[in-house]
Design a binder for these strands. Structure first.
Lengths: 132, 132
DNA sequence: TATAAACTCTCCCCTTACTGGAAAGTAAAG
DNA sequence: CTTTACTTTCCAGTAAGGGGAGAGTTTATA
């Protein structure tokens, strides 16, 4: 099938699929006459796999690792698990950071009148002398 | 003072400060002879302000807004508060998304043996047929 | 069969918010 | 006077594609 159909089957944009071809992630056969790429069901499965992994916040490089593990029928599952646990830890870190930000901003917002007067604790906090 | 001192006072890199000059955020006076930029204490205060707002996850454009509100002595505080509440909502959204990801990954990881055998529920989940 | 619409190709620029490096000029220190 | 430390501009690159131009291909319609 052509790239458009493969893309829609995989739930990705044509641009994205072409990009994956360019970086050698899912390199479909390309007709030397027309330049048209030809995708197999197997390629579509890989594209779906990548799409899902990307939605799980795995980077392109991590997807590449996962994909090679996925294609290696003898892979040990511990490698996949390790990658997943790392990703979880990364997400936890980001969560903590964002929670901290939210709490601080929330604190500032609740102390701000939010009216037509110029005094604003938020700006005061932002302009306070160096915080470290 | 020169850019190096201004940057260290503001807790930013020289590159960053130069970048802020280029995009017209904090445009310091520039000696026409030497090309050296000259930073005042006022400029440093602005740089600090921006640095802090950036750490609060405000984008460059939002920082520009905040900065102009900060410099306008007659601004109504409600504008600042609105911007802050928007930012909080944005962060909340991102938090929910990340929590969902973490939970799903966690679920997968707990069902994976993580040993030397090839069977892996994580990869199975990633390669399962279309999820929507 | 002619033509129009839909699809595909490559190529280049754009995004965010910088960071790194090269080559060259300037200033301060020894 | 030389070395070292700063500073300048310019170019390139990051992640992960998106937008659009211009050209070729395939399919559908008149």
């Amino acid at each position: 099938m052509n790239i458009g159909k493969a893309a829609s089957k995989a739930g990705l944009s044509v641009k994205t699929v072409r990009y994956y071809a360019n970086i050698g992630m899912v390199a479909a056969y390309q007709d030397p006459q027309t330049g048209y790429r030809e995708y197999s069901d197997d390629d579509v499965a890989k594209l779906q796999f990548i799409g899902k992994a990307r939605r799980f916040n795995f980077s392109i490089e991590e997807c590449r690792e996962l994909l090679s593990l996925y294609q290696d029928k003898n892979r040990p599952s511990k490698e996949v698990k390790a990658l997943t646990l790392e990703k979880i830890a990364e997400i936890e870190e980001k969560l903590a950071e964002l929670q901290g930000l939210r709490d601080q901003l929330h604190h500032l917002a609740t102390h701000c009148q939010g009216d037509d007067r110029p005094d604003c604790p938020i700006l005061e906090a932002l302009s306070a002398s160096p915080d470290r």
